[in-house]
Computed example of a mutant assay.
Amino acid sequence: MSALFNFQSALLVLLLLICTSAYFHQLFPGFMDRNKDGAVTGLFWKCARVGERLSPYISVCCVIMAVSLFIGN
């Protein structure tokens, strides 16, 4: 089933995008800040901002998602 039709998979993809963007922003801040305008690069920059500012909540969501995937299988 596609992630578009499964809410749990879509949420997992969103969480992974936020976490990955925040990690790459930490590694390459100049590159991410320079490319914050635009469709694709702007999306990564915005996800990095969300990951940096809401990191405790994002990490709790990741743990809850991991536990729900572990229990669900």
Rank of each mutant, 00 (worst) to 15 (best):
W45D: 03
C47K: 04
A3H: 10
S59V: 10
H25D: 10
M65C: 05
F7A: 08
L54H: 09
L11C: 02
R53I: 02
G72F: 10
V50H: 10
D33H: 05
L16M: 10
F7Y: 01
L27A: 03
K36F: 07
R53Y: 09
A66E: 08
A10V: 11
F44D: 00
I18E: 06
L54N: 06
V13Y: 05
G38E: 03
V13D: 03
L17T: 13
F7S: 07
G51P: 00
I64P: 00
G42N: 07
Q26D: 08
I71L: 14
S9N: 12
S55Q: 13
I64D: 01
L54M: 14
F5I: 13
L12K: 09
I71M: 10
C47S: 12
G42D: 08
S59I: 13
N73G: 01
F5S: 11
L14Y: 07
F70P: 00
T41P: 04
D33L: 03
G42Q: 13
F28M: 06
S2F: 07
I71W: 14
G72T: 14
W45M: 03
R53P: 00
L4E: 13
C19A: 15
M65K: 03
V40F: 06
C19E: 15
L4C: 09
V67R: 02
P29M: 11
S2D: 09
R53K: 10
A22D: 01
R34K: 03
F28T: 01
F5E: 10
N35I: 00
A66Q: 09
C61V: 10
F44Y: 11
D33V: 03
F31N: 05
F5H: 06
P56S: 13
S21R: 03
F28D: 06
F31C: 08
R49N: 01
N35A: 01
N35Y: 03
G30V: 01
N35D: 00
M32L: 14
V40R: 06
D37W: 12
G42P: 04
F24P: 00
R34H: 03
L43R: 09
L69A: 06
C19L: 15
C47D: 05
S59L: 11
Y57C: 06
G51F: 01
M1L: 10
V67G: 01
S2T: 13
V63I: 12
Y23E: 04
V50E: 07
A10D: 05
P29E: 11
I18M: 08
Q26S: 02
H25C: 11
L14H: 07
L4W: 10
S9E: 14
